[in-house]
Amino acid sequence: MKTPIFHCAAALLVTGCGIAAAAVSVPAAAQVGGIVHDPRNYAQNILTAARTLEQINNQIKQLQNQATSLANEARNLSGLPVSTLEELQGQVDRTRALLGEAQRVAFDVGDIQKAFDARYKGGALTGTQAEMVANAEARWSDSVGAFQDAMKVQAGVVGNMGDARRSITTLVTASQSAAGALQAAQAGNQLLALQSQQLGDLAAAIAAQGRAQMLDAARAAAAEAEGRERFRRFLKGN
């Protein structure tokens, strides 16, 4: 049986241990030099400051990303600093002017019909001797003029090739150094316009050459019909 003295000793031991433990733990607050210092409040303040700093850094990153996005949009919206439109229009105008200088038989349906009615068929092949000679000379002039026109158009097309080469160099250089999508698209559009102009020159050259060949073929056919008429009159003694 334990004695009361033993119980008292045990109680004192427990009490002493509690006091020692309390002495080892960090105090909730301490007063140093008249200033109260709370370690738990200080740690909380540091944690709050760290979180605030992290939020500020995230906002800075978002602003940087937005600035980069706006800069990219600005580059994509900036126009191409060079344009070959005026040169292309000049080339087209020169080719059209050459076609407009067609001699005797123009590139016009009404003019063609009048020329054929007057010199290539019907009464033009069965008129008087003097009329037949005059119409034959007119047809010869038509053919010579048409071949001359075709050669002039072809020379103009060849001259435009030099300008086209310079335009291609300018546009390809601009396309390769394009800062944004709009500049690249505009360079591509101008290259397509240049291609269309070259196709137009090719069509003009083909049209002029075809006109010359058709007029010469019509002259040959008219000469053959006129020859038959002359032979018929010879047989009749006219």
Rank of each mutant, 00 (worst) to 15 (best):
143 S>Q: 15
168 I>P: 01
197 Q>A: 12
191 L>W: 03
20 A>Q: 03
222 A>D: 05
23 A>H: 04
14 V>N: 00
30 A>H: 06
164 A>H: 11
227 G>L: 07
33 G>Q: 13
168 I>S: 08
63 L>R: 11
120 Y>Q: 02
101 E>I: 05
124 A>Y: 00
237 G>P: 00
228 R>K: 08
23 A>F: 01
170 T>D: 14
82 V>A: 05
211 R>D: 06
197 Q>V: 08
73 E>N: 15
200 G>E: 14
233 R>E: 01
163 D>I: 12
225 A>H: 15
202 L>E: 12
215 L>S: 04
74 A>T: 12
237 G>S: 00
122 G>N: 01
112 I>E: 09
119 R>Y: 14
228 R>E: 10
110 G>L: 02
236 K>H: 00
18 G>Q: 02
127 G>P: 01
165 R>G: 11
100 G>P: 04
37 H>K: 09
4 P>K: 04
32 V>Q: 10
176 Q>E: 07
103 Q>H: 13
119 R>I: 07
153 V>S: 05
129 Q>H: 04
219 R>G: 06
56 I>N: 08
26 V>R: 00
116 F>A: 01
168 I>H: 12
175 S>A: 11
212 A>K: 04
11 A>G: 15
102 A>H: 03
195 Q>S: 09
140 W>D: 15
211 R>M: 07
209 Q>M: 15
238 N>I: 04
86 E>C: 04
232 R>N: 09
121 K>D: 07
187 A>H: 02
158 V>Y: 13
5 I>T: 07
95 T>F: 09
49 A>D: 02
191 L>Q: 07
30 A>C: 06
142 D>M: 02
30 A>N: 07
127 G>Q: 00
207 A>Q: 08
44 Q>Y: 03
48 T>I: 08
217 A>D: 12
117 D>L: 10
107 F>Y: 05
138 A>T: 12
103 Q>V: 14
53 L>S: 06
231 F>Q: 10
29 A>F: 07
202 L>W: 11
49 A>W: 00
135 N>K: 06
154 Q>F: 08
233 R>N: 03
193 A>H: 06
53 L>R: 06
177 S>Y: 03
26 V>L: 01
60 I>D: 13
92 V>H: 08
196 S>F: 08
57 N>D: 07
175 S>E: 07
223 A>Y: 10
60 I>Y: 11
213 Q>A: 13
77 L>M: 09
71 A>L: 05
15 T>V: 09
227 G>H: 07
17 C>P: 02
156 G>S: 08
212 A>D: 05
219 R>S: 14
229 E>V: 10
68 T>I: 14
76 N>D: 11
38 D>P: 02
116 F>E: 03
12 L>M: 15
107 F>T: 02
106 A>M: 10
74 A>E: 10
180 G>S: 00
60 I>E: 12
188 G>M: 05
111 D>V: 06
123 G>K: 09
6 F>Q: 12
126 T>A: 05
165 R>Y: 14
216 D>Q: 15
86 E>G: 10
237 G>M: 00
44 Q>C: 00
110 G>H: 02
134 A>H: 00
51 R>I: 12
31 Q>C: 12
30 A>L: 06
148 Q>F: 14
69 S>D: 14
184 A>C: 03
36 V>F: 11
162 G>S: 07
131 E>K: 02
216 D>N: 14
4 P>W: 02
228 R>H: 15
221 A>W: 09
79 G>D: 11
228 R>S: 08
134 A>P: 00
132 M>K: 03
57 N>T: 14
217 A>P: 04
122 G>F: 04
211 R>H: 09
